[in-house]
Nucleic acid binder design. Structure first.
Length: 118
DNA sequence: CCTGTGACCGAAG
DNA sequence: TCTTCGGCCACAG
């Protein structure tokens, strides 16, 4: 009774999910940012934003470099990071690319968000 | 094969 | 403005 609601949607998260996330993040140019939820939605479902976070946490293991610092949360804040100093590093990398932060420590998504084409 | 480990989001109260 | 909650997994060792 509780599980009568079958999944009509095909799975958006599956083998190779991390690779898809990395490929997408690599398309974000210098000085621009995207959000976890945005990546999730682009890949098929905004509900898997968390999975995107998990994938990014392992970005360092990817064979090719991934500009992980260009991914921020829905509020424009930099990620907590695995290591406490990751947030500072992320901010520094972004500022180095010309991204400015507000006094609250957030980036203006209206201005810096990168919109994936097609 | 089994286990631990993780960077989120938006709605509701 | 803050807290809780459902979503419901890939991947390395």
């Amino acid at each position: 009774v509780l599980r009568e609601v079958e999944r009509v949607e095909p799975r958006v998260v599956g083998p190779g999910f991390h690779a898809k996330v990395y490929a997408l993040v690599r398309r974000v140019p210098r000085g621009r940012v995207v959000t976890y939820g945005q990546i999730a939605a682009t890949l098929g479902s905004s509900r898997v934003a968390r999975q995107v976070g998990y994938a990014l946490a392992a970005a360092g293991q990817a064979s090719e470099p991934v500009p992980w610092h260009r991914v921020v949360n829905a509020k424009g804040e930099v990620s907590r990071g695995k290591h406490p100093t990751d947030a500072d590093e992320q901010r520094e990398l972004l500022e180095r690319e010309g991204v400015q932060f507000s006094v609250e420590g957030t980036v203006d998504l209206e201005h810096y968000r990168w919109h994936f084409e097609r």
